[in-house]
Design a protein around this nucleic acid. Structure first.
Lengths: 292, 292
DNA sequence: AGCATTGTCTGACTTTAGTCAGATATAAGG
DNA sequence: CCTTATATCTGACTAAAGTCAGACAATGCT
């Protein structure tokens, strides 16, 4: 009754019935669950038909029929993908957007009422973040993104906010050497974001320079995802990206107020070197030679 | 993206796919989910057909057919209830027990592998307990139980352990006036356990005496269930039990190292009285007159 | 250009889940 | 004993989900 496995299983049961309740409330909009799920996937920005099919684990025949039924309802439109006319891309019509908003409202309402029913909301949220991160851990996807994308900006915003809290003197981006976005885009560099489901939970930038090396910048892991080895995964991905771009020497700067970062670098083959720039914030400098 | 509602919804998504994965693995045993659920309900000790139907939310026709299909597979047997021949009682056959064990193994394996994949197991389990308690809060069932039952012993064990942690001098049951089990059983008294699903999460004892009053003993709420008003519910249930037994005066003793308990008593009609026993642990004494 | 591959769609299924109106048997209350 | 209520079962449905084989057009590769 108290053993860990029983506790996990009790959690599973509790959560299964909660999930069932949400599904049931979705049925209230008079549409089978399958169709509602496809509509919501499109509403959440998944436009590529094949991607939706994979995400929802549907057979292509079933998927096709669900799309047809949503089209017949006037909720979505499909058209051929611009680069590959075999693929189809779906988008919401005006009516579809309204209907999607109604589903969103249902989800939001049930989430709000769950929070309102419980007094210790912060503790619950922290518990939920932890579990969600643990569950989706295998499904954390690292991907190259434009440093100007919403996902990248979200990470950077949280990163700066955290530096502001952790540096005694605060942190003001404009005083730091803010890398130019194009230095962190192919072919000069790269910007890698870790996504858990639709939530960006970590990032790292690889910034090309004209001095024969590239710099690692903006390594950040969301608080709820720490302890899962994501920092290491991001750094590995950045090194891979450097290798692909034919870069053999990496440098980075950091601050001793971020001890976990320093620890990561020291244990993964980086060696401390003297200051190599005049940025006011860093006080530690590292270098790593990478081999192909 | 970081607002509380989004965090709850991210959790919901993470958990939905985890639940779906378990359902899928259940399908691997070549039986539809509905039948598997009924088999498991029976395996977990729910024998009464009506109870299973309510628990799983099934239509009586569907339920009947699922029972028939399990019978045809040779996994269960049904017979009339001994007190009421309209009701049916289901039980596992030898083959059924083997099959149930296979489902149990699936659940256990996935729970174990989840724990094994994650290093911070204790933090995760605490988070899961908290969420499970919050989710099943409306479904916490208070019931009269024998103080010698497994559920009661589990509560008391945790209760003593907590007193040991919270009293400066520790806590040794044998020094305290350990109530005789029969004083907390009808018709002299009562022992009430709060169950969340299959986990005992709180208890209270009503101990009959020969002095014209009854004592409230062993009020305990599991850490993961605190802040949900369960203490109050347990006390109300104990008062109801006293009323049923025709007891009009209640007393209790407690310790100032347990401030939340004292607060509860003071705000629910108890008044402090002088020491009325020689137990070494309590330093606060209360009394409450209850009216029918 | 020829051929295999890929992504989507259609038709023709099957299985599962769920609903509803009785039928039947037992039980409970006067 | 009669009436009403309760628990389960059966038959006759419908809806939803899922499967599978093949058609078709676009693409990629040689």
């Amino acid at each position: 009754m108290l053993d860990p496995v029983s506790r996990v299983r009790r959690f599973n049961r509790a959560v299964t019935s909660a999930v069932g309740a949400l599904d049931t409330s979705f049925l209230g909009r008079g549409r089978p669950l399958g169709a509602a799920r496809v509509l919501n996937a499109i509403g959440h920005g998944r436009s590529d038909v094949g991607e939706i099919r994979d995400y929802l684990g549907l057979d292509s025949g079933l998927m096709s029929r669900l799309l047809r039924s949503l089209e017949d309802e006037g909720l979505i439109e499909t058209q051929a993908h611009e680069d590959d006319a075999r693929r189809r891309v779906a988008s919401l019509t005006r009516t579809g957007k309204r209907e999607f908003a109604a589903y969103e409202a249902l989800s939001n309402t049930q989430a709000e009422s769950f929070l309102a029913r419980n007094s210790q909301a912060e503790a619950l949220l922290a518990a939920m973040d932890l579990i969600a991160s643990a569950l989706t851990r295998e499904r954390i996807a690292l991907g190259d993104m434009d440093p100007r994308s919403d996902e990248a900006r979200y990470c950077l915003g949280d990163y700066y906010a955290e530096l502001g809290r952790r540096f005694k003197q605060g942190f003001d981006v404009s005083l730091s050497r803010d890398p130019d976005a194009k230095d962190m885009r192919r072919p000069r560099g790269s910007f890698i974001v870790a996504m858990s489901d639709t939530l960006p939970i970590g990032c790292v930038g690889l910034k090309g320079t004209d001095h024969g090396y590239a710099e690692i910048k903006r390594l950040w892991v969301a608080p709820s995802a720490r302890g899962l080895g994501l920092g290491k995964r991001l750094m590995d991905a950045a090194e891979d990206a450097a290798r692909m771009l034919g870069i053999a020497l990496l440098r980075l700067d950091t601050n001793s107020a971020l001890p976990e970062a320093g620890r990561l670098y020291r244990t993964t083959g980086w060696r401390e070197i003297p200051r190599f720039n005049d940025d006011p914030y860093p006080d530690l400098f590292f270098e790593k030679q990478i081999r192909a």
